[in-house]
């Protein structure tokens, strides 16, 4: 329990220090675009009413969840297929490296033509960025599964499905989870980017609209909220990581 308290204190320590630094450094600010932190926090409760949470924040998070889940499903499925099939890997590798290098914001007008301007488009934008780290890390993870383990599975005739579920996926899971963590960070950014085009609601949309209508303290409050959202999602991911890879973490810690 002591270590948990200590860890929490350490985790919150730097943010608290930065917050205090910001507070005092900006206290007397008259700059339009950098108001005092006290003004921003005062705006916070006024801006982020329950209606805004329901109409802006929740839809954004929901789209992020949908896009991220779709990316994970597609990325892992395709990654396993490509990683396990050698000719397919060699065929697709250059194309994949090309595709992942294209920044999603550049693709947004194109995506808008295919996917319209509603939730589908925003989710597609998120997928267009999130799928790559998951796909490529899955391919790498699958290709690096211990050959002796694959031989064991083959020798015991475990079969394709059981080999996939009991050997390949768990063996590749550390790399896959790494890809998923990268994708989460990208997803939060794209959630905002997708709402800068043809949006009518959303957290990113609200922040941009505040900026456009010169409601600067509200804009900053939105940015703070976005940061907290990102941090909360990262914390949630750590829980997921510990659950899925608990054996991996213990092994690294305890290995004889």
């Amino acid at each position: 329990m002591v270590t948990l308290a200590r860890k929490t204190l350490l985790a919150l320590g730097l943010p608290a220090a930065l917050f205090a630094l910001w507070w005092f450094a900006s206290a007397g600010s008259t700059s339009f675009y950098f108001p005092p932190l006290s003004a921003i926090t005062a705006e916070f409760a006024e801006t982020w009413t329950p209606e805004r949470w329901r109409d802006d924040v929740l839809p954004s998070v929901a789209r992020l969840a949908a896009g991220y889940t779709a990316s994970a499903a597609a990325g892992i499925a395709l990654g396993v297929l490509i990683g396990r099939t050698r000719w397919l890997f060699h065929l697709t590798e250059p194309v994949l490296e090309f595709a992942r290098a294209v920044p999603p914001p550049v693709l947004v007008p194109v995506i808008m033509l295919f996917a319209g301007i509603g939730d589908g488009m925003k989710t597609a934008v998120i997928v267009s960025g999130c799928v790559w780290p998951i796909l490529l890390n899955t391919v790498a993870g699958v290709r690096s599964v211990e050959p002796v383990q694959l031989d064991t599975a083959a020798a015991f005739r475990l079969g394709r499905n059981r080999t996939l579920l009991a050997v390949v996926l768990p063996g590749a899971s550390p790399r896959i989870v790494t890809g998923m963590r990268q994708a989460l960070a990208i997803g939060v950014i794209l959630m905002v980017v997708s709402e800068m085009f043809a949006a009518q609601s959303g957290l990113g949309f609200a922040i941009v609209q505040f900026q456009r209508s010169y409601a600067i303290p509200a804009m900053w409050s939105g940015i703070l909220l976005l940061g907290c959202l990102g941090a909360a999602l990262a914390a949630l991911f750590t829980v997921f990581d510990r659950a899925v890879l608990h054996w991996h973490h213990r092994q690294r810690a305890e290995e004889v």
Binding site: V148, Q149, D151, T152, A166, P170, G171, W247, H248
Partner: peptide, 12 residues
């Protein structure tokens, strides 16, 4: 196999 360490599955 010879490589006992790598033939057992560490997630089980």
């Amino acid at each position: 196999f010879q490589e006992y360490g790598r033939s057992l599955f560490p997630w089980m």
